[in-house]
Design a protein around this nucleic acid. Structure first.
Length: 189
DNA sequence: ACACCGATTATCT
DNA sequence: GATAATCGGTGTA
């Protein structure tokens, strides 16, 4: 079933990050349909999380979409050259988000290969947050857009096999003690 | 296998 | 002016 606003407005962002492992991520962008299975996510827990862009209630033009109701995209430009894709979760006013960090391509593989470059090995097409957005054709145009079938969306069937590992998050060593929270989920299918 | 480092620019202070 | 939720190439082993 397609994951809707009701699903994304649950308030436990750590649960959602883990629950999104094994879901299918779809884009219909520039005339190309692509799908992958989500293998890696991270939770960013709103105003209380020192790693979150919304830590301490920070509200800027960049973070404004995080305060919108769950079920929309928060896409931002990172390190001067990469787009990173998050799902905004929780209710309006609670700026939680789940970063989608990795995926195994399922459909539209040739399109993804073309977007990433012909010499990229299959397993490296979308095994990183910026690789994934590039493979899926996602950029800043879609910041703040509703996640719905036909554009950018998720669907999920049942429980997955295999083990989900929880680790500290990547690239947030500035976050003090929150650096070590087990908010990253990695699936070893 | 692993460590190092340069690229490149929107966003925030 | 400094920073950044990264990536890919280079070098050593």
């Amino acid at each position: 079933m397609v994951l809707d606003q009701n699903y994304f407005q649950q308030d436990d962002v750590v649960f959602l990050a883990k629950d999104l492992i094994g879901s299918r991520f779809h884009t219909q962008i520039d005339g190309a349909y692509c799908v992958g299975v989500v293998t890696e996510t991270e939770a960013y827990e709103g105003v209380t999380d020192k790693a979150s862009h919304a830590y301490g209630g920070k509200f800027t033009s960049r973070t404004a979409v995080m305060y919108e109701p769950g079920g929309i995209a928060y896409i931002y430009f990172c390190y001067g050259m990469h787009f990173l894709f998050n799902v905004v979760t929780a209710k309006r006013g609670t700026p939680h988000a789940v970063l989608i960090r990795g995926m195994i391509p399922l459909k539209g593989i040739q399109i993804m290969q073309n977007r990433r470059g012909p010499h990229i090995p299959f397993r490296e097409i979308a095994n990183g947050p910026a690789k994934l957005t590039k493979a899926m054709g996602i950029d800043g145009r879609y910041n703040g857009t509703l996640l719905e079938e036909g554009h950018i969306w998720f669907d999920k069937s049942d429980k997955i096999a295999g083990h989900i590992e929880a680790t500290k998050r990547i690239g947030i060593d500035y976050a003090g003690e929150d650096t070590f929270l087990p908010y990253r989920f990695v699936w070893n299918p």
